[in-house]
Amino acid sequence: MSIAYTSVSWNTNKKIYDGILLGFVLTYLSIFICACLIIYPEITIETTLIRATSTLAFLLLHVILSIGPLARLNKIFLPLLYNRRHLGVTMFLIALVHGTFSIFQFHALGNISPLVSVLSSNTHYTSFIKFPFQSLGLLALIILSCMAASSHDFWLNQLSPKIWKILHMGVYIAYGLLVMHVLLGVIQLEHSPAYFILLAFGVCWVSTLHVLAAWKENKRDSEKSTPSADGFIQVCDVSEIPENRAKVVTGLKERIAIFKYQGKLSAVSNVCKHQNGPLGEGKIIDGCITCPWHGYQYLPHNGKAPAPFKEKVATYNLRLTGTKIWLDPKPNEEGAEVMPLDLHL
């Protein structure tokens, strides 16, 4: 968490994350390039670089798209999500090298501008098989560049988390374009079925993870109770919530996190103001609800981030009948104080 904008708020984990990432990128490129030059001594260095960067960027994109659902399915993957933006920007820079090199190689030094050439050399836009696959890659690169340029928290706050999130969902459009870029491009030249099999596996892998994560969440969302006359719904027994943890329930529309801590219960919106992270999968640390994604914190009784931070989430009213917890699914204003339920009374 930070109150002032800095280019990167470095900490030990981010440095380790980036160090490992850089080490991996250099190792992959070295191995790919050396293997190419050894196995195919007749290959050109331009082709080697184009293929090394394209395969690396595409593999990293699969990792990026897998981290989100994996983290929803198993908490152990959360540390990979913490610095995913650096992974995304790294992937974009590698893709940019691939795109720039390819545009220069295939379109520069001709009789028209290289960018015009990308869109106008192959004009078979109405044919599936002959479709100009390079234009798909260019479009994906433009989407990824918008995402990389707006990846900083400055833009998150300027655009609002909702708009920012919508903009960054563009990664799925970019992924679709890149799958077609590969399918209608290099796969049409290569003889080995390995390329098609790997591409199909990648698409299936990403799709399956997303379906599983969505199924898990939908299952939880479908567990709804009938509201009582005053609108409260029965949620669960107190014993079902571990200390300093939460149970997530679905209210009217939004998910709500009910936390148990120090013999008390409080309910807040499940959606973190930072990047819409799932607060209910977080933990109470130092008396604050701590988001599992990037560690943003909120006080459980009023949903406000501790000073000097200014984020705040909606709070909810609770009622206890015996050991059963009842929740009013109508949200209070963001940051509204609600007396925690005291389990000792």
């Binding site: 191995i31 190419c36 290569e190 390995a194 390329y195």
Partner: peptide, 9 residues
């Protein structure tokens, strides 16, 4: 990555 290298035509 190595598989992709080795399977080039």
């Amino acid at each position: 990555g190595i598989l992709l290298v080795g399977k080039q035509r």
